[in-house]
Design a protein around this nucleic acid. Structure first.
Lengths: 341, 341
DNA sequence: ATGAAAAATGCAAGCGCTTACATATTTGCT
DNA sequence: AGCAAATATGTAAGCGCTTGCATTTTTCAT
C-alpha cells in the first residue's frame, strides 16, 4: 500500500511476511499469542522495512496511549527535575511514557497545556499544586482523565495528591529559627497568588511566629518570581528597612542562593551578621557559600509514589490517595543565632 | 455518536450545531472558509460540549502533526534549558508544538527517544551534537524526517546544524589562559565518547597548547559526567599530581563550579593559587564564588535560529544550513596569572 | 486414528478526523 | 431578472492501527 516515499505501514509488513495485519499487530503487542515461526518471519519483515508503528493510529485504534502528561511550573530550575526524573523512571517500568510541559507559573498556559496533553491522548495527568481555576477540575472530570497533584499534600483536596505538608514543614524551620532567638524575620517568598505551596510556606512561618508570641503581621514578606536574581533584589529590599531582620527565610533554595550572594556583596557575613535559609534542598544548597540550611524534601520518593498512585488510578481505579511525606531540616552553615545574642 | 461517558467528538458537535463534520472541522482549522453565522453556531456547540479535538485522529487524517521533537542530553542542568526555551517560543509563534525528551547522555536511549518521537508523528527533530550511530542517520532519511543538529557547528556535517565552533571557542579561552603565563594546565571534561562538543573542546585546548609550543600530551585530562560533584572529585584528582597545574579548564560551568567548591574546601584561593574556568555561561557562573570566567554561548539566539532553520526545512524545503554563531570570553574572577608569575 | 478443545490466524469494523470533490447557496454583473 | 462565477457546505473516502469474532490449524486424550 505504501506509496513510495512514505514510511512503511502494518500492511506493508503483513504483505512482506505473508500474514494478516492482525497477526503483525499481535507480534508487536502480544508476541505470546503468535507462534514462534510466524513471529520471526514478521520480525524480519519489520527489520527489512525499517517499520515503525504509527503512534497516532495506534492510539486511535486502542483508545489508550500509555502516556502520562505532566505540567510543571518551570524546567528552568532544579526543583522539579529530580522528582520528575523518578516519576518518569517509575512510569517507564510500567510501560508508560511521560510527556512533560511547563507553564512558566502562568495559569492560562497551564490550562492550555493541560488541554494539549489531553488532546494528545494522555491517559493521566500529573499536576503541581492545587491552586487553579475550578473550570479545569470540571473539565478533567468531564473528559474522565485521572489526575494527581504532587508537591503539596492537602488532606481535603479536590484531587488526590502525593506530597508533603508545605505549611508544617516551613513552620518547623521557622520554629527552629525563632528558637535560636531571632525575632525580626524577613521572608522572601515566591509569588503566592495561584501557588498554594508558596502561600502555605508563608502561612507556616506565620504559624510559628504566633506560636512564639510574635506578631505575624510584623514579618516583612516580599514576593518575587523564583529566580536567583530576584532573590538578590528581594534581599536588598528586605534589608533596607529601618530595623532590618536578623534572619531571612526564603521560599526556596533558588531565592536563598540569590539572597546569600547579595549578602556577600553587601559585605555581610552569613550567618554571623544575618541568617538565611532555603527550602527544597537542591544541589545548589550544598554548594552555596556558606552551605544553605534548608528543608529537605524527598523529591525522588515523591516522584516514585506519584507514579505508583497514578498508575493505580489508571489500572485499578485506585483512589490515588496516600499519606503525606515527611520533610526534615538540613542544618548547614547559613543559619546561626542573631548577632546580638 | 458519543456513548455516554466518552469525550465528545466532531460528530457530536456537528449534530448539535446542525452542520456537517466537515464544516466543524473547517471552523476549527480554517475559520475563514466559513460564514460568520455558522462559525458562531459551531463555536457555541463546541463550548457547550466542552469539545476537544482528538489529536491522534487529526494527525492521522492530516498526515502532519505540527509537532517538533527535541532530544537533549539532560534536563538536569541549565545548559540546555535556555536555548530550548527560545527554540520553543519561536516554534510556538509559527504554530508548532515542541515535545522534549532527554537521553541522559546515553546513545541507546537517544535512539529510542528518536523513534518514539517519530512514531508520535513529529514533523521534524532537533538533535544535540553530531556523534551518533550511522544507523540513526539512515533511519531519519528513510523516514523522511527533517532533522537539525544544534549546539555544535561543523561545516561538513551529515545533518544541517546551527551552533558554534566548540573547538575554536575553547581554543580562544585556552589561548588567553596560556597567554597569562600558565604552562601546567589541567582539563576537566565531560565524557568525550559520543559527545563531539566535549571532544572538540578538548581539541581546542590541545590546539592552543601546540600553538604556544606546549606539548598537548602534557595536559592532564580527566573525563567525568557533567555533575557538580564530579567536578569536585575531578579537581581533587587533577591537583593530586606531583606538580599540580596552575589552571584548570573545565568543559562546562557545572564542572567548574564543582571544581571551585572543592578548591575552596582545600583551602586554595581562586584565582590566586589556582585558576579555574568554565564554559557556557549559565546563571550559576555569575553567582559562583568567585564568579566564573567562562565562554559565553548565545543559547537563546541559537535556539531561535534553530527553530527558524527547522521550520524552513519543513515548510520550504530549505537546506537548514547556516553560519556558525559567535562566542566570547566572559572575564570574571576565577582566572588570573599563575602564582609564580 | 479421531473428535473436541485449544491455539493460531484471518476478516473486517471501526477509532475521530481532514479534505478532495460534489452540491447548494450567494454574489455581482448586465 | 437572470446567469456565471465565487463562496459556503455536504458527502464520503480514507489515514494506520487494534480487536471481537469467525475460521483454520494444532494438540491431545481416548
Amino acid at each position: 500500500m505504501s506509496k513510495l516515499g512514505s514510511a512503511p505501514t502494518l500492511d506493508d509488513v503483513a504483505k512482506l511476511a505473508g500474514v494478516s495485519t492482525a497477526t503483525v499487530s499481535r507480534c508487536l503487542n502480544n508476541p505470546g499469542q503468535v507462534v514462534e515461526a510466524t513471529r520471526l518471519r514478521v520480525q524480519s519483515a519489520v527489520d527489512a522495512l525499517g517499520y515503525m508503528p504509527n503512534f497516532a493510529a495506534r492510539v486511535m485504534a486502542a483508545k489508550r496511549s500509555s502516556t502520562i502528561g505532566a505540567i510543571i511550573p518551570t524546567m528552568e530550575n532544579a526543583i522539579f527535575a529530580r522528582g520528575l526524573q523518578a516519576f518518569q523512571e517509575e512510569l517507564h517500568q510500567h510501560g508508560y511514557t511521560l510527556l512533560v510541559s511547563s507553564s512558566a507559573y502562568e495559569p492560562e498556559i497551564e490550562e492550555e497545556q493541560i488541554k494539549t496533553l489531553v488532546a494528545r491522548g494522555a491517559d493521566g495527568l500529573l499536576l503541581i499544586g492545587h491552586d487553579r481555576h475550578p473550570r479545569i477540575y470540571e473539565n478533567l472530570e468531564r473528559w474522565k482523565i485521572p489526575a494527581l497533584v504532587a508537591w503539596s499534600y492537602l488532606p481535603d483536596a479536590q484531587l488526590p495528591c502525593i506530597g508533603f505538608d508545605n505549611r508544617a514543614a516551613m513552620a518547623e524551620l521557622a520554629n527552629h529559627v525563632i528558637g535560636l532567638g531571632h525575632t525580626r524575620i524577613g521572608v522572601i517568598s515566591g509569588i503566592s497568588a495561584g501557588n498554594d505551596r508558596a502561600r502555605l510556606r508563608i502561612n507556616g512561618i506565620q504559624d510559628a511566629a504566633s506560636q512564639h508570641g510574635l506578631d505575624p503581621s510584623d514579618l516583612t514578606i516580599i514576593e518575587t518570581p523564583y529566580e536567583i536574581e530576584n532573590g538578590a533584589s528581594a534581599f536588598s529590599e528586605v534589608m533596607s528597612q529601618n530595623i532590618p531582620p536578623t534572619a531571612v527565610l526564603c521560599g526556596n533554595d533558588v531565592l536563598a542562593v540569590g539572597a546569600l550572594h547579595r549578602a556577600m556583596e553587601m559585605g555581610l557575613n552569613v550567618p554571623r551578621d544575618i541568617s538565611i535559609t532555603g527550602f527544597d534542598d537542591i544541589e545548589l544548597a550544598r554548594i552555596a557559600t556558606p552551605a544553605l540550611t534548608t528543608v529537605h524534601v524527598p523529591h525522588r520518593e515523591m516522584g516514585r509514589r506519584a507514579a505508583s498512585a497514578l498508575i493505580g488510578m489508571l489500572e485499578n481505579q485506585a483512589s490515588g490517595h496516600g499519606n503525606p511525606l515527611a520533610t526534615h531540616i538540613v542544618e548547614r552553615q547559613s543559619l546561626g543565632p542573631p548577632p546580638d545574642a
